[in-house]
Simulated assay, not measured.
Amino acid sequence: MKIAIVGMGASGASLASFLSAKEELEISIFEPALSRKNHLWGFWDDGSPAFEAARHCRQHSWDSLAFVHGEQRRQVDVPQSPYSVVNSRDFIQSCEKNLRDSTKIIRESVISLSENPREAIVKTREREEGFDLVFDSRPPMFPTNTLQQHFLGRWVEMPSPVFDPETATLMDFRPRPEEPFHFIYVLPISRTRALIESTCYSPATREENWYRRRIHDYLQEWGEGYEILEEESGQIPLHSGSSSQGERIKSIGLRSGTLRASSGYAFAQNLIQSQKIAEQVFDSVDLCIPDSCLPMEKWMDEVMLRLIRQRPQQAIEAMMAVPGALDGLDFTEFMTGHSKARTRWSLIWGLPKAPMISAALGWQ
């Protein structure tokens, strides 16, 4: 069977890695970029085999997660599914090591995809080739004015020990700049070194110095004299819509709606989806692209995004209620998209009722 994978981000690279376990498959990967912008990808490592490649190259993991707003601090302990991060380049290289020598990596941009009853056709400027299956992982087009998670982070080295390397702060809402829904994300890998990231949810991004000033202001709690080691930035459209599927051309990754729209997480969902797709290919069954999370979880994400748009201060209060409503195991299951009904109802019951009901009903 001839298979093409378009794009070699987390989804395309992991699918190629899983499919390489079967020698009978002839795999071609279309990826024009020799290197991609490096990012940290986060996931909760619950021991799933889908995370094996990520586990081998993870940079750090944390057993405790903190959420801070004003004088309020909530902590969730997740030792059974520690929060882990990998460098995107390290992960893709880890997947590449699993590829068979016969796998082709074609450094060409795909212009179009089409299919007929016999084959799917991949067209670039240099070639036109037929395949039995094509998996398209290119980012989809998003509606205008989609809410975005936009961020800039700096790796810093402090002159004295100030961080707790056992605890990652996922959201610190204490800085209150002019951006209504803004928080600081802190990933310490030692007592003196951490990634400090300024993150906003809004339709438009800020100029880069705006985020840098937020990070500098945050670090003033521990004084001057820190060293900036590295910087990363990006934006994630917070939209879980998916592109159409064909018989031979299948959308995967963000294109198939793997993003958890209220949080911006997709890495774990991409890997789990890739593993399940590979299992279907190996079993020669009709392909059904797996959903990344349950319909009710997607609906809950949509309600939270509506609240962030309409009432950002109340959305912050709702976000702070999440770690109070769930224990560590329930929290990680909900974040990775396979929570139990009991967990979902516990979360709904623990959230502030009036603003969530208003957002659910679409009231302004």
Rank of each mutant, 00 (worst) to 15 (best):
E119S: 15
E108G: 09
R74Y: 07
M141R: 15
R125P: 10
F131H: 03
S84M: 01
A120Q: 02
E128M: 10
V85P: 00
S88W: 00
T124C: 11
N116W: 13
P117S: 04
P140S: 01
E128F: 07
D77C: 14
F67D: 00
L65P: 00
S64I: 13
V122H: 04
L99D: 09
R73H: 14
S64F: 08
D77R: 06
Q72R: 07
E96S: 15
I121M: 12
Q80G: 15
V122M: 07
L99W: 05
Q80K: 11
Y83H: 03
E108V: 10
F142L: 02
S94I: 04
M141Y: 13
V86W: 00
I105R: 05
S64G: 02
S81T: 08
D101E: 09
D136Y: 04
R107H: 12
T124D: 14
V134L: 07
D132G: 04
G130T: 01
Y83V: 08
V134W: 08
R100T: 09
A120S: 11
N116Q: 06
Q80L: 15
V78Y: 07
A120Y: 10
F135A: 01
G130C: 01
R127D: 14
E119I: 01
R107I: 01
D90M: 04
P82E: 07
K104G: 08
Q75H: 13
S94H: 11
S109N: 06
Y83A: 11
L99V: 06
V134T: 03
S84I: 04
S112L: 08
K123W: 12
D77M: 04
D132T: 09
V134Y: 09
H69E: 15
E126L: 05
A66G: 12
C95F: 11
R138M: 00
K104L: 02
E129V: 13
R118G: 12
L113N: 14
P117V: 10
H69C: 15
T124V: 03
D136Q: 01
N87V: 13
A120N: 08
R118V: 13
P140T: 03
A66R: 00
Q93A: 03
I92M: 03
R74G: 14
T103Y: 05
D136M: 04
G130A: 00
V68G: 12
T124G: 06
G70C: 02
V85E: 00
C95A: 10
T103Q: 01
G70N: 13
E129Q: 11
E96H: 11
S64E: 03
I105C: 07
F142I: 12
F131W: 04
C95E: 02
L113K: 04
R118E: 09
E71S: 13
R100N: 15
A66D: 09
D90W: 12
Y83W: 10
P82M: 08
Q75I: 15
R118W: 12
F91S: 01
G130E: 01
D77A: 15
I92K: 14
V78W: 05
S81I: 10
V86I: 05
N87W: 09
R125W: 06
E126W: 02
